[in-house]
């Protein structure tokens, strides 16, 4: 009942479609505005908390284990749901302490939904857009976009886990001139699978907080010179 565009095609076709869609969704070239968000990395670079590949690796591990885990759980939930978007969005709100991060997440969610509706038209995406016109949180948008594209909830969660760190990594490459190959090795060594799990009870979704990321996001908004939205 996921409105897969491959309905009527052999199962193998559907599975391939989901995997290809996962690649498209997780690609930084997806035109949904992600390139302008650093996930706190810009502020961390400015504050001297990220100065090289080792710092960046620790930053990304922390990000994946906290914000990434929560995003993956929300995306898994959204990908397997068909209604009650306000409720899931409220669960996301409750798990993001920083108003700046909530705002950045909603902005990215709004942009992603708009983009996804043109790529993978679906009634569920339409419902999400109507339920949350100012933008759902990004992982929810990602989960529903993944559903519309024919991905499994695990694939949606993987996309959320992956994109929770890739934007920050790219931002550090741009801001500090780090060797992009070194940074990609760092990305290749991250434990993405460890943050992906089935979610069947929204009230029990993980709520791993990262106070440092919250503070970086708030400080970033107050910084005069900034290249990234968040």
């Amino acid at each position: 009942m996921h409105g897969s565009p491959t309905g009527g095609m052999p199962n193998q076709g559907a599975a391939t479609h989901g995997l290809a869609a996962l690649l498209l969704l997780a690609d930084s070239r997806l035109p949904a505005g992600g390139h302008a968000h650093s996930g706190g990395a810009e502020e961390a670079c400015r504050a001297g908390l990220i100065t090289g590949a080792d710092d960046l690796s620790r930053f990304l591990r922390g990000r994946l284990a906290t914000a990434g885990r929560v995003a993956a759980a929300l995306a898994w939930s959204a990908c397997s749901a068909s209604a009650s978007w306000e409720l899931l969005d409220a669960e996301a709100d409750a798990r993001i302490a920083s108003p700046a991060q909530r705002q950045a997440s909603r902005t990215q969610g709004r942009l992603l939904v708009r983009t996804a509706r043109r790529i993978w038209p679906s009634a569920t995406l339409n419902d999400l857009a109507k339920a949350l016109p100012e933008g759902s949180h990004h992982p929810i948008a990602l989960g529903v976009a993944a559903q519309a594209a024919g991905c499994t909830p695990d694939q949606a969660a993987m996309a959320a886990a992956y994109t929770s760190v890739t934007g920050a990594a790219t931002a550090a490459v741009r801001l500090l001139g780090l060797d992009p190959v070194t940074v990609h090795r760092v990305l290749a060594e991250l434990p993405y699978d460890s943050v992906i799990a089935e979610q069947h009870d929204w009230s029990a979704l993980p709520a791993h907080a990262a106070p440092a990321l919250d503070l970086l996001a708030e400080q970033h908004l107050r910084t005069e010179v900034r290249l990234f939205v968040s």
């Binding site: 035109p31 949904a32 390139h35 302008a36 942009l111 741009r174 801001l175 290249l227």
Partner: peptide, 14 residues
């Protein structure tokens, strides 16, 4: 995000 041309050409979402 450091890439003015991206925002007007490759990823115009914002």
């Amino acid at each position: 995000g450091c890439c003015p041309h991206t925002a007007i050409r490759d990823d115009i979402a914002a």
